[in-house]
Design a protein around this nucleic acid. Structure first.
Lengths: 190, 190, 190, 190
DNA sequence: CATGAATGAGTATTCATTCAT
DNA sequence: GATGAATGAATACTCATTCAT
């Protein structure tokens, strides 16, 4: 895989910032170009159209999330440890990359999002679902569709990030650790 | 409270449909007008601008969700029953009004959403948070910020709706009931 | 001549104020209506269209100027006295009705002004020109086209009003009287 | 000073023609573009908005008038000769550029005209007033505010142009020369 | 007579995209 | 590859005018 051209990366970063701040429509190509330090026409050497740019940016950013999941899921630790590690890793990732999170949500609910209409077609969710399948098969989790477990877990993480940011929720000592515990206690087999 | 003018309502419905289908930018006022069966200029008798229309639509739709919550929260049933009733009521509401759900998510992540930047300023969340506060005080739930409990519960419901729709998850017999149970088992005091 | 209906007059006044302040285009009929205290539709009982309203307002206002001229021109005083009286009367009229003056100038240079493309077709200029013709015939003024004398005199008056207002010219004692004197000294026969 | 871009000039010319013919409101940007031979959007590369276009056109055109004045005012001729030269130069300028004259008057009486609310803030009037100040100091003219002398002279010139055009005044032999003479005879010191 | 909701043609402006340099 | 001037289709919004009440 060739390393991403420097300008291409600059365009990605510029787009990410602008879109999370002003939305897709509030982000004209001319602005993307200016902030990336290139000419408007240059963008079209790297991307067919605005739509393609947005979609490729989504792929680009999602890969980062995939890597976070991949690292924890491949570990040899017992399932429960993997589970908690995954929770905290993803939490930290979204917490430290809030514009990535915002971009995901904007994209998901936009008309750009066509391909991924079907859940589980992408690497991120495939990994996630397989992980929860393992948890079921190893007898740690309730025997319910791994899809639902994965989605519940993911939304649990995202909500926690968002409530900390927009909810102005001041986390008390040890309070954060309770949240994945809530999730685990709910999903574990009984 | 005066009843909403017929045309105003038609404009609301038309906007809701179009925006959930094509996004804010993909929804020109001319189309809104045509589908509502009014002239373009007529919209501006009822709404100052497109932005105002979107925001008022949000208020209009949110009220519907508030009523669902209100009904369950005011009941005299024991907390646990309330909890499950609330879960299923909101689930049904979103399931039957999928475009409302989609509109919420689009709006929340759009630049239109300014006022509600702070969680808990609106009636919906106030009710929700108060309900979970009650659960804590009555000793049913873990002693953690009711804000986080409320948000977790809400995202749990929404995710369930979404996974059924976009995840093409075929619910098995009795499988749906497990989900609020997961939530409850996780959050209940121990 | 029937007295002008009260509402019609209110519409005239409202239009005059708004047009002098915001121009023709900056004066929507709805605003005219609101300031006149009538409904938008009511205007169309009195005036065929916006254009007609503007033109009739022009006639209405011009009549006031005509009366000023008429009064001085009909007097039995010697020509020179008439001349100075006319100068001061018109000066006072414009000074005290600055929005009339502004409206005249706006109207004259607007596309509404069609009919009066030819100078001297209207009562105001007819009176003016006849007065200067008398001055020539009586041997007081240079023998040059009375049209040009009339126009020069009128523009002299208007300029004096305008320079006092926009020029922030503080008139010194006796300085104002010099101006018609300048005019007279220039035009008188020699 | 860089030379004005060719397209910018074309836009200026197109605007001048259309505005003098149909007024500001009667001149849509699309027409300006078409007559200038550019695309509608192109105008916005050179001008922020219609308002800016109008205002810059005013500056552009006023410069031409300033140059006419400058040339005559700087001359070493005796004051009286300068006076008559200035009169005829400005007269010719307005006569040959009637749409410039019309544009000036439209602009002056429009809501676009904000800055120049105060007389004498602009180069044109500064030059004019200084010239008449000289005439007073050299003892040629009556000792009255040079502002009023300047404005009277200017309006005298403009009126002459207008009366020739709209008044359908056929100038007789030697008749035109009388007009600046009238002005001079009125203003000269006695 | 009076109202003001409704109309819809008209317009300034934006912005994704192209292409000559 | 890179530029940015030029394009023109698309769209939010205004406002003169009408007409049912």
């Amino acid at each position: 895989m060739e390393p991403i051209a420097e300008k291409k990366k600059a365009i990605f970063e510029s787009t990410l910032e602008l879109v999370t701040e002003h939305g897709f429509h509030g982000t004209p190509m001319s602005l993307v170009a200016k902030r990336a330090g290139v000419a408007a026409g240059t963008i079209y050497h790297y991307f067919e159209s605005k739509e393609k740019l947005i979609c490729e940016l989504f792929e680009y950013v999602r890969k980062q999330a995939v890597e976070v999941v991949l690292k924890e899921v491949q570990s040899d630790l017992p399932f429960k440890d993997c589970f908690f590690n995954l929770w905290f890793s993803l939490f930290s990732f979204y917490k430290e990359n809030q514009n990535v999170l915002k971009f995901f949500e904007q994209f998901t609910n936009s008309p750009y999002n066509t391909e991924i209409a079907v859940l589980g077609q992408d690497e991120f969710h495939r990994l996630l679902f397989r992980f929860f399948e393992r948890g079921i098969q190893e007898g740690h989790l309730r025997d319910i569709s791994p899809k639902i477990l994965g989605v519940l877990a993911h939304s649990n993480i995202i909500s926690t990030v968002k409530v900390q940011v927009t909810g102005r929720w001041e986390v008390q000592d040890g309070e954060l650790e309770v949240i994945p515990q809530i999730l685990w206690d709910g999903m574990r087999d009984r």
